[in-house]
Design a protein around this nucleic acid. Structure first.
Length: 109
DNA sequence: GGTCTGACAGCGT
DNA sequence: CACGCTGCCAGAC
């Protein structure tokens, strides 16, 4: 019988990583968008939690994932570090908040 | 097996 | 516009 083998990484985490890695430079996305792409907008919280467990920031540019209201959100290495990285991507940030989030927002594949 | 926490989102005040 | 409370889901204890 086809018993489902349990991968080292949960199915959810695998999808999240795949999406985050596809984010082009200079663009950002929100936790909710990712959750919607997974088919469950309520996953927004689980997304951040999953990325936190990742701890492989150099493999996954999770700093490009921000909150839906335009705030930077959180980061395992610190919010300040996250903001700094976003600035390097030409993202205009004002007082810990992204300007014209819709412009930088990445909702495509 | 239940319970609590956490890198969020939405609504009300 | 800023702050606070509640609700959702998955993972950790």
């Amino acid at each position: 019988m086809a018993r489902k083998n349990r991968p080292a990484f949960s199915n959810l985490q695998k999808r999240v990583f795949d999406l985050v890695k596809k984010i082009p430079r200079g663009k950002v996305t929100t936790y909710k968008i990712i959750a919607q792409k997974l088919g469950n907008p309520g996953l927004a919280r689980a997304i951040g939690n999953t990325l936190n467990k990742n701890r492989d920031l150099k493999a996954i540019p999770c700093y490009r994932v921000v909150k839906s209201n335009g705030e930077i959100g959180g980061y395992r290495a610190g919010k300040i570090q996250k903001t700094n990285l976003l600035k390097k991507d030409r993202i205009k940030i004002k007082d810990g908040r992204i300007r014209d989030l819709n412009f930088y927002l990445w909702t495509k594949t």
